Computed example of a mutant assay.
Amino acid sequence: MRAAFAWLTVARVPGNPSPRGVLPWAPLVGLVLGDLASLTGWLGARYASPLVGAVLAVAMLAWLTRGLHLDGLADTADGLGPLRGRERALEVMRAGDVGPFGVATLVLTLLLQVACLASLLTVDGGWLALWTAVVAARVAMARCGLPGVPVAAGSSLAAAVAGTVSRVWLVGCAAVAVLCVVATAWWLGDLGQGARLVAAGALGLAAGEVLHRRARARLGGVNGDVMGAAGEVTATATLLAALVLVGW
C-alpha cells in the first residue's frame, strides 16, 4: 500500500518502497484520488461554475498524480500512432520529448475530459461519474499486472510488477467499486443513476482493454507508459459514457 501511494501520487512516503507492490493497491489509490477530485469538482461547480469545477478537478488529478499518467498517454500515442517498427516505437516512447502526435492526443483527451465533466456537474450527483472514472482507471492499470501479461522490452517497471495482481483480487476490487457506486447513488436517491454509472465504468474498462491489446500487439507487451495510458483512456471513456447514459 505504501508503495502504491509513493509511486502513483505526490504523497511522500518514508523509505524507498519497491514498485513490486504498486498495482494490487492501485484501486485503493483511485478511491482516495476520486474522493479528492470529486470534492474539488463539486465545490468548483457550486461556488463558481460547472466548467470551472471540471477544470479544477482535472487539474487536481494531474497534480496529485504528478502528471505521470498523462505523460504515459502522450508517449504511448507517439509510439502507437505513426507507422514505425516495434523497436523504433519503444525507442520513441523512452525519449524524454513528446512528438506532435502525443501532444495532439494529450490536448484532445484533456479537452474531452473537461467537456464531459462540465456537463455532468450540472446534473445532481454528477460528481459521482468522476469518482467512477478515477477508480475504473486504476482498475485498468491493475489489470496490467495480471499473470501472463507480457512485458515490453526494456521496461524495468513493467518487469517489476509483472504477475503481482491475482485475478481474484482484481475482480474483488472491481466488485467493491461497483458496490460503492451503487450505495452512493442509493444514498443520493437515484439507484438508476448508479446502475448507469456502473455500465459507464464497464464501457471505460472495455476502451482501456482495446488499448492494452493494441499495445501488446504493437510493442510486444506493456510498459509504464502503457499502464498510464490505459488509465487515462479508461477514465476518459467512462466520463464520455456517463455523459451519454446519465447527463444527456
Rank of each mutant, 00 (worst) to 15 (best):
M1H: 11
A4N: 02
A6F: 09
P17Q: 12
S18Q: 10
P19C: 07
R20V: 15
A26W: 03
V29W: 01
G34E: 01
G34W: 01
S38P: 00
A45L: 03
A45I: 05
R46C: 03
A48P: 00
P50W: 04
P50D: 04
L51A: 11
L68Q: 13
G72N: 04
E87P: 09
G99F: 08
G102L: 06
V103K: 05
T105Q: 12
C116P: 00
L117P: 02
W127P: 00
L130Y: 08
V134M: 08
R138G: 05
V139K: 00
L146V: 08
V149H: 10
P150K: 10
G154D: 11
S156Y: 10
S156P: 02
A159G: 10
T164H: 04
W169N: 04
L170I: 12
V171T: 13
G172T: 03
A175C: 09
A175F: 02
A183G: 07
A183Q: 10
W186K: 13
Q193L: 15
A195W: 15
G208C: 02
G208Q: 06
E209M: 08
R213S: 07
D225P: 10
V233N: 05
A235V: 01
A241K: 08
V246P: 13
G247F: 14
W248R: 15
W248D: 14
